[in-house]
Every structure is written in C-alpha cells, then in structure tokens.
Computed example of a mutant assay.
Amino acid sequence: MGQRWRVLVGLGAALFAVNVVARLIIKFGFDGDELAADRVTLGMFVVIGLMLGAVAFNWGQRRPVAQWGPEAAGAIGIALALTMLVGPLLVGENPFAAGSATFFWQVVLYLVAAGAGTVLGYLLLTTLGRDHRSRHLSRYAQTATTKPRRIVRR
C-alpha cells in the first residue's frame, strides 16, 4: 500500500512541477505579455494531458481501470490543489487575485486537460487491444479454442 502512495504523490508532484516551470517561464520571460502567457499556459495544459495520457497507457496495460483510475484521480487532485493554491504563491501572487470566477475557470480548464489526456491515453490503449481486459479476453479465447489433450489408453 505504501508503494501506491509514493506513485500517487510522485505523479502529483510531477504535474505540479510542470505548472511551476510554466509559471516561472511566464514570470521571468514574458512578464506583462498576455498573449505569450496564454501560449505558455496552453503548452502547460498540453504537457499535462500528454503526461496523463502516457500514464493511462502504461498503467492500463498492467491493471484494470478500477485499480489505477482512483490513483490517477488522486494524483490529479493533489496536483490541482497544489497548482491552484501553492503555485501562485511561488511567483509572488495571490491565488484569488483575479477573482473567484477566474479561479474556478482555471480549475475547470485543469480538470478538462487532465481528463482529456487520461481518456485519450486509455482509448489509444484500448484501440490497440493492449489494455488489461483485452489481453485477458485474448488469452481466454486462445485457451477455449484449443483442443484438449487426448488421453491415450494402453
């Protein structure tokens, strides 16, 4: 069980690190340029989606969705809380400085990017037939169609 918590916290920290890098790039590279800040933010959401797609692709091969789904959701929750509450403080801003509407829209955008990446990664895995369930069904089909060993009497 301890191993699962380490993976969950590690994934959450990696997602948060992507946000921190994006915030630092905006702060030091494009301070005041809204168009560039929006592009960096879009890039951050794409990277988060790709990371979660890769995680879903990797975890979906070994375990059923019922096992890794809650872990991925927990990691997304940890990363979201850190991103929304701690991330702005790292660059000297208030999390609620732009108002509550902006804060909640950021939460929605983060969840959409994370959910889309996870779902697309798992759909790709399922399309290729390499997910946990497809592999078990394939093994069952192979064993069910083979003829049983013929017993030879002497």
Rank of each mutant, 00 (worst) to 15 (best):
M1L: 15
G2P: 09
W5N: 13
G12S: 05
A13S: 07
L15Y: 01
F16S: 00
A17C: 07
V18I: 10
A22Q: 03
R23A: 07
F28R: 15
D31Y: 11
D31H: 07
D33Y: 13
D33L: 14
E34Y: 12
L35A: 14
A36C: 07
G43L: 07
G43V: 11
M44E: 03
V46N: 09
V47W: 02
V47S: 05
L50Y: 09
A54N: 14
A56V: 10
F57S: 01
N58T: 15
W59Y: 10
R62C: 10
A66H: 11
A66T: 13
P70W: 13
A73W: 06
A73R: 06
A75E: 01
A75H: 01
I76W: 00
I76M: 03
G77E: 03
G77A: 06
I78S: 03
A79C: 05
A79Y: 01
L80M: 05
A81F: 14
L85Q: 11
P88T: 04
L89P: 01
L90M: 10
G92T: 06
G92F: 11
E93A: 15
F96C: 06
A97F: 13
A98E: 14
S100C: 09
A101D: 15
F103S: 00
F104K: 00
F104S: 08
W105A: 15
V107C: 07
V107W: 08
